[in-house]
């Protein structure tokens, strides 16, 4: 890895999960402070007819703003945006969102791979990706894309995951990812969001 990659600040965070992930998010996201400076993009597999109540529920539990992403909405730091049910969420290079009804990936729309790959394209090495509990291989390619772009990668420790399939698949595809129990993730992500010099002095 070259020097410029190592020094770059993380500017956005992507999170993906499926079975058990609503509970994991309820534990993880309230741990992020109101002043968390990064935008956070999340894909959770939901049934296509889901009415979008998760964003409201999380918003009531979190210090950060939680919302459903809108098509062509400019990305805002400090806001957590969820993919709506039945639409892929993509990040554009002008740092806005796009939604699409392209084919499902691993039977899933939204797909974690679609979000992570587009975000890796837009943010390059300034992206951090997190794979949580789930019962699918979606997300493995996406996390690999984050790594290849020079970004930081994290996987929930399969031993602490409600369903280990997704974190295991992510680790198989991206063995370089840091494995962490859910309880330590929020602290690690906060450290990441700080300026590099500070971050370096912490670790």
């Amino acid at each position: 890895m070259n020097e410029s990659k190592k020094r770059s600040h993380i500017q956005a965070l992507v999170i993906g999960g499926s079975a058990g992930a609503v509970g994991a998010l309820m534990q993880l996201l309230p741990g992020l402070p109101g002043g968390f400076p990064l935008p956070v993009f999340i894909v959770i597999h939901l049934p296509p007819d889901d009415k979008g109540t998760l964003a409201g529920l999380l918003n009531s539990q979190c210090q950060m703003i939680v919302q459903e992403a809108e098509d062509k909405e400019p990305i805002r730091p400090g806001v957590i945006s969820l993919a709506p049910a039945n639409y892929h969420l993509l990040v554009e290079r002008d740092f806005s969102f796009s939604l699409s009804q392209d084919d499902p990936v691993f039977y899933s729309r939204p797909s974690i791979d679609v979000l992570f790959e587009s975000a890796a394209d837009a943010y390059g090495s300034a992206l951090a990706g997190v794979i949580l509990t789930g019962a699918s291989a979606d997300g493995a390619r996406g996390l690999q894309a984050v790594h290849r772009a020079g970004g930081r990668t994290f996987v929930q420790d399969p031993a602490t995951a409600e369903v280990p399939t997704m974190p295991q698949a992510a680790l198989a595809a991206c063995p370089q990812a840091h494995v962490l129990p859910l309880s330590q993730l929020a602290r690690t992500l906060c450290a990441l969001a700080l300026p590099t010099e500070l971050h370096a002095s912490l670790s």
Partner: peptide, 8 residues
Amino acid sequence: SAASLKRR
């Protein structure tokens, strides 16, 4: 939309 066009 460039991101989904690239995917396709």
